[in-house]
Nucleic acid binder design. Structure first.
Lengths: 208, 208
DNA sequence: GTCTATAGACCGATAGAC
DNA sequence: GTCTATCGGTCTATAGAC
């Protein structure tokens, strides 16, 4: 991925570029399927069909289904890191957190946010072994953790909640099924849905 | 289930009682596994092993894995209906909603709340075809819907949110992964976890 | 003795892996 | 394109209740 974003890499052969491009297409397809049906229900045949390549070719890129999914989720985590560094640092910390939550919700409604694996899935171990994913996760957690503590210090965020509880809540809202429920009802636009869920997340269900 | 609780049913043979008791054990085991790993990852061999019976015996009780899971989830829905009718009606509607959320969270921490199936799972169709489940779901939704509108009318609940959004949020919190995250951190007791998540749910992350 | 439910072997399809 | 493991589902002989 760094190969496509950093400019001074002219030494890539055509083959290598094709390889990377294909890998990119695979990852995009995997994230869509992961968001749609989850890891267990996703088959590698589906992935191959979606990308339009032979199943065997997948195994030239990834040693296993777990690794495939872990790489795809590491990519999402990388996008999150990129988003965070782009957030306007002059904004108050609460607004930075809100912007982040809004972004993750948009990602989910766009079908690009993988649903998180159940507690004991084989995916979990693959994720834990994926350094890209774990590094991204740590960077995201550290950044959000700082913002959370700053927002608690300036009085905008509930200071009685442990920061880790806030952090986990933000992670969970990125995969909140409420978005899908409301979308399935067909009564609201994506923006309306996001604003409603953001409101319940930050302001709560009770009247203020 | 009604057979063991209602007194005037002496016509049940021991065989039938055994049958019902075993069915009960099966359902309990299924709900545990469903909560633990989800429908796709759960195998019927595991269920049989957990209950301590042969797999074929399962199929004397339930025609398919989907039906098995649907029956188990219908049981949970039935428990929810029972809980709702037992909620103190003299409490204000907001407190009734809070008590309900607290109860569902306790259920999840106890490992008795099945994780909800992904959007297109085969379980979904089985659930839609299960009248017990659908009846319970409708009863629960109607009851909660009334409480929600009452709580909005008396000013305790945010009246700007569509009632259906509140309803979906309460359903989603019953399966909120934040509970599992916090439990996994090992730093908080179950009661502390529930109170924290309840607080974020009803009061929001922002300071009041 | 009959009849039902059980247990464990068994089958076919499918999905991961190569 | 093939191999193999696994999983949902079935078959049959047997044990036990009546």
């Amino acid at each position: 991925m760094s190969a496509v974003s950093t400019a001074p890499s002219p030494k890539l052969s055509f083959r290598q570029q094709m390889h990377l491009a294909r890998e990119d297409a695979i990852i995009v397809a995997v994230n869509r399927l992961l968001a749609d049906k989850g890891f267990d229900a996703m088959t590698v045949d589906e992935v191959a069909a979606e990308v339009g390549i032979a199943k065997a070719s997948l195994y030239k890129h990834f040693p296993s289904k777990e690794d495939l999914a872990a790489t795809a989720m590491a990519r999402v985590m990388q996008r999150a890191v990129s988003f965070l560094v782009g957030v306007d640092p002059t904004q108050p910390p609460l607004e930075r957190l809100r912007a982040t939550a809004r972004w993750t919700m948009g990602l989910q409604l766009a079908g690009e946010m993988p649903s998180l694996p159940s507690e004991n899935s084989s995916l979990r171990t693959a994720l834990a072994a994926n350094t890209d994913y774990m590094d991204g996760l740590m960077t995201v957690s550290d950044t959000l953790g700082e913002w959370i503590e700053a927002a608690q210090a300036d009085g905008s965020l509930d200071a009685q909640l442990p920061p880790v509880a806030v952090l986990y809540t933000l992670y969970a809202r990125a995969c909140d099924p409420v978005l899908g429920f409301l979308k399935g009802s067909g009564q609201y636009s994506d923006d309306e849905i996001i604003e409603m869920v953001l409101r319940t997340c930050f302001n709560g269900l009770c009247r203020r």
